[in-house]
Design a binder for these strands. Structure first.
Length: 962
RNA sequence: GAGCGAGUGGCGCAACAGGCUAGACGCAGCGGACUUAAAAUCCGUAGCCCAAGUGGCAUGUGGGUUCGAAUCCCACCUCGCUCACCA
């Protein structure tokens, strides 16, 4: 604190200063901890409490829990925590049993990287970071139930993460029942023969390894050899959601390559429909719902088989959303990785030995045989990174395979190409090209001189000859033309009807059917990391995976000497991952009795991704120390169970950043649904209401070289900015150490106190909007608290200044208006306007010669959710006992919300010409009469006749002259 | 390129459903009080323009609907976010 305040402190020893705030805040924080003020009772079990509180309506209010980084918090981090805290406090004061707490998400790459950089064990550095963060957060006075806090790295927590993994591993998705069921039930169906095993031999004839293989195709958690995102720079594989659009790792920005590796996956695709449909009932921002819908990417269309000329057994199966344009298909394209063009092995390959007679020379790529051309193109495509593929998107490349397919509707011969604009990972990896009606096919057809056929009548004046067009034509509101074949005709149908008709025809013929295709892929669930949850899986000598029994959980992460990941040159795709755990042979090789005697096993050495711990943590808050179950059924039903208006149940308010739209939020929904299907929980959705807080931005000052300079050392002169005499530029950016503009909550607390910081963060603007931090402006909220304090306490003596007189009418109206507005704003997360209303009331009260006690008390209650420490202190000074936390929030008396007299505006053609004081209950007729009689109105009308009078009693009259 | 969102004083932002003279509340500014002085605090002032009025212009720009538009519609401009060869 600066020394200049000392004099003021002497003059006014009881002024609300930073020093006094610090003293008040520390005292009340200690009181809350000792008192357990924020402990929310469960209906039963270890955390059971006052039945009267349990009987209240519940509110489960949650933040996205923090990831403890070494850098500590800046003022942007706690924005959401303060908002949920205010909201939670408001609901505690309005008769709710409020569960509000905070844990720590502490496994994962950043913690590990920080540990490697600093040369400390991740557990040591993570624990230190958490302690530091806890201290920073405690200073803010957040009302958390500390009994319920945990860290995802606690073995008692990740025991249940592993347990859930086993639940998922031990279940399959029953497409008929549309839900997950235990894998044992599938085994029973196979054993009884009720359900046939895919493949030629019956279940009873299969070996143990073969059976494991079959089940692996059903399990919701399974290992497979599919191509995955391999990131040599990070030394680990990544989920699709963790790879950016330009083919780089979201973390670290290293190149990512497709590589075939045996990895664990979660069959999230089984839930695609439910993940999509259940979004409708969630109270989430539309933008986030839209992002999830796009990510799931449901497309309705059809599968169509095209016979291949000269290969009676081969067919090209395509997925299309425009089966109505089948007559317009003039060629086919398969992805370079497609089985049909894999020359080696000859498994269904359709590439002929020689180019067909008269092959266009541009189609051959200059190669002597189709096999050579295809092999060369495949190699070229494989060498391209996603970045390059992206960059080349405009220029279409490809090569003719030498094969022809037959269009089943018209009998037309269609050349089959392979090109990298068709992706193996989407649909069937093959398309029918309709160049007249698809922009990509149009570009390819132009490049390779392929024919085009118009089968949808253009709605503009371009005509029906595609060779004269500048671009393809694509519309769902047009008529099908030129689509009559020997067996089926679509001519004259509208697009939707034509789609249905074509799908029916394909189904009748057995050469296709209407299908739905999803963009969503299975979730890659293993990482080559040390700092994560170990998989509770061991392999026997035949390589069959076995789940550990529940009794062996938690499988603790072993202490190792070398926990650093094996990373490679970021651009070296010819590398393969090495798991840190595999270096520890003593841990990897074990002898276990899994029910059939002691045998030797090897442990799985991958670890789970950092998302695992956050997929279910909301459940553990409910019953954090339960050693028997992940959560007691009673607690789960009470806090999460479906309520009216929340058909799926879930957390009542979940606040966090929008960056988790498709990662955490999708994964957590998926786990909830599996646990729900298996009967472990009653809520099929984790988060009923989601709210995205905006970002706190900060000015970044850069010198002439573009290097950020320390923001606090920058001076402003005449609208320009200078750092050590040098002119610097100013731009709005993120807040952080690297941009030298971080402001910590600690320094603001030291300067003004936590209550001021809380108020300022809430007053800056609407919660969901990003806005720039301005340290200079914080003082405004400090002044509000000082004035509030002064309205109750004499700064010189510390004595109360309130009087026991009844407030006058105007004061009561101001009070009740504020109470009403603040309550509504709080309930709707509009804290910025709530603070404005409190300020307005406080400014009003400041002007009173003396402050009535009843007004002061209600003002204290009004600010209690926002500035809890000063509220507690004033409440106590006002002679009230107990904590303000559990007082009732003031309720507005409607009688004082109606003003005695209302100002009515009289407009003439929308321009205000007079103002009248009228009774709020005045009738339209009466008001019109009064308005027309007003001298100013008469004068303004100047004798002109009246055409029309619009009356909105009691506030407005608008006169339209003739 | 596509989709979504947003443009209001020097700044952050208000105006809850088209209707109380747009700019609440706060920062910065300006004037004053207190002080030897400064800081802090308090009181006041404050959109822009001018011939200073019972004046004109003002919610990104241009049009429209309406008695009345920051609010609704159309076009354009700018910024932000998301997705991006998904068949």
């Amino acid at each position: 604190m600066s020394e200049t305040n000392t004099a003021a402190e002497v003059a006014a020893p009881h002024r609300y200063t930073a020093a006094l705030a610090a003293d008040i805040e520390a005292r009340w924080q200690d009181f809350w901890d000792a008192d357990g003020t924020y402990e929310a009772p469960n209906p039963s079990g270890e955390l059971a409490g006052d039945p009267a509180v349990v009987a209240r309506p519940k509110k489960f209010i949650m933040d996205m829990f923090p990831y403890p980084s070494g850098a500590g918090l800046h003022v942007g981090h706690p924005l959401g925590y303060i908002a949920t805290d205010v909201y939670a406090r408001y609901h505690r004061m309005t008769g709710h049993n409020v569960l509000h707490t905070l844990g720590f998400d502490a496994f994962g790459l950043p913690a590990e990287q920080y540990a490697v950089q600093t040369g400390t064990h991740p557990r040591v550095s993570t624990e230190a970071n958490i302690e530091n963060m806890k201290a920073q957060l405690r200073r803010l006075g957040l009302g958390h139930d500390k009994r319920r806090s945990f860290e995802t790295i606690d073995p008692e927590y990740y025991k249940w993460t592993q347990w859930i993994f086993l639940q998922i591993f031990n279940s399959w998705y029953d497409e008929d029942a549309k839900k997950a069921r235990p894998i044992a039930e599938l085994v029973a169906l196979f054993e009884s023969g009720e359900r046939a095993v895919d493949g030629e031999r019956p279940w009873s004839e299969l070996s143990a390894a073969e059976r494991a293989d079959v089940l692996g195709r059903y399990r919701l958690a399974y290992a497979s050899d599919a191509p995955v995102n391999w990131c040599p720079g990070l030394g680990t594989v990544l989920a699709n959601e963790e790879v950016t659009a330009d083919g780089r790792s979201e973390r670290g920005n290293f190149p990512v390559f497709k590589s075939k590796l045996r990895q664990w996956n979660m069959r999230i695709t089984a839930y695609a429909d439910r993940l999509l449909d259940d979004l409708d009932a969630l109270d989430w921002p539309e933008a986030i719902k839209l992002q999830q819908r796009n990510w799931i990417g449901r497309s309705v269309g059809a599968r169509v088989d095209f016979p291949v000329e000269g290969h009676p057994d081969a067919k090209v199966t395509v997925f299309t959303t425009r089966q109505d344009t089948l007559f317009g298909a003039t060629y086919l394209v398969v992805a370079p990785e497609h089985q049909l063009v894999v020359a080696e092995g000859g498994n269904g390959g359709i590439v002929p030995a020689a180019w067909p007679e008269g092959t266009h020379e541009d189609w051959t790529g200059g190669h002597a045989t189709p096999a050579e051309a295809v092999a060369a193109y495949r190699k070229e495509a494989a060498a391209k990174s996603d970045v390059e593929r992206q960059a080349d998107a405009k220029e279409k490349t490809g090569v003719f395979t030498g094969a022809y397919a037959i269009n089943p509707v018209s009998g037309a011969r269609l050349p089959v190409f392979t090109a990298d604009y068709v992706l193996m990972g989407y649909g069937t990896g093959a398309i029918m090209a309709v160049p007249a009606h698809d922009s990509r096919d149009f570009a390819f057809a132009r490049a390779f001189d392929l024919p085009m056929r118009c089968v949808v009548r253009p709605s503009d004046d371009r005509g029906t000859d595609p060779s004269t067009w500048a671009e393809s034509f694509d519309s769902y509101e047009a008529e099908i033309i030129d689509s009559a074949g020997p067996d089926v005709s679509l001519d004259g149908l509208a697009v939707p009807e034509a789609k249905t008709r074509m799908a029916e025809w394909l189904t009748e013929r057995g050469i296709g059917e209407a299908t739905v295709n999803f963009r969503l892929r299975d979730w890659l669930f293993s990482r080559q990391r040390y700092w994560g949850e170990p998989f509770p899986i061991v392999y026997d000598e035949a390589g069959v995976a076995h789940p550990l029994p529940e009794s062996m959980l938690p499988l603790e992460l072993p202490e190792v000497e070398d926990y650093s990941p094996r990373t490679f040159e970021p651009d070296d795709a010819d590398t393969s991952p090495e798991t840190p755990l595999s270096r520890n042979e003593d841990w990897v090789n074990v002898e276990l009795d899994l029910g059939d005697g002691v045998k030797r096993y090897r442990r799985e050495t991958n670890t789970m991704p950092n998302w695992a711990g956050s997929c279910w943590y909301e459940l553990r808050y409910l019953d954090p120390h339960n050693s028997e179950r992940l959560v007691s059924a009673d607690a789960e039903r009470y806090w999460m169970g479906p309520r009216e208006g929340q058909p799926h149940g879930g957390v009542d308010l979940y606040v966090g950043g929008a960056e988790h739209a498709v990662l955490h939020l999708l994964y957590a929904r998926f786990w909830s649904k599996v646990l729900f299907d298996l009967g472990h929980i009653s809520s099929a959705e984790p988060f009923h209401k989601l709210y995205n807080q905006g970002m706190i931005q900060a000015y970044v000052y850069r010198d002439s070289r573009g290097i950020p300079v320390t923001a606090t050392e920058v001076e402003e002169r005449d609208g320009a900015f200078y750092h050590q005499g040098e002119k610097v530029s100013r731009l709005l950016g993120k807040m952080g150490k690297s941009l030298k503009n971080a402001v910590t909550p600690d320094e603001i607390c030291a300067e003004y106190g936590a209550d001021t910081l809380r108020l300022y963060e809430m007053a800056m603007g609407p919660l969901d909007v990003s806005r720039p931090w301005d340290t200079r402006a914080v003082v405004g909220q400090y002044r509000l608290l000082q004035r509030l304090w002064r309205n109750v306490v004499d700064e010189a003596t510390g004595e109360l200044t309130v009087v026991d007189a009844e407030p006058d009418d105007a004061t009561l109206r101001a009070l009740h208006k504020a109470v009403d507005g603040v309550a509504q704003d709080m309930a709707n997360l509009r804290f910025n306007t709530a603070i404005a209303k409190v300020t307005e009331l406080n400014n009003f009260v400041t002007k009173l010669s003396e402050v009535p006690r009843s007004v002061a008390e209600r003002m204290v209650l009004l600010v209690a959710p926002l500035a809890p420490h000063i509220a507690e202190e004033l409440w106590r000074k006002l002679g009230r006992t107990g904590s303000v936390v559990h007082q009732d929030f003031p309720v507005a008396d409607p009688a004082y919300l109606v003003d005695e007299a209302v100002t009515c505006v009289v407009q003439i053609k929308g321009k205000v010409k007079a103002r009248l004081e009228v009774a709020p209950s005045i009738s339209d007729e009466e008001l019109e009469k009064v308005a027309l009689a007003d001298p100013a109105v008469v004068a303004a009308l100047g004798g002109a006749g009246i055409r029309k009078v619009i009356v909105r009693a009691p506030k407005l009259v608008n006169i339209v002259p003739a």
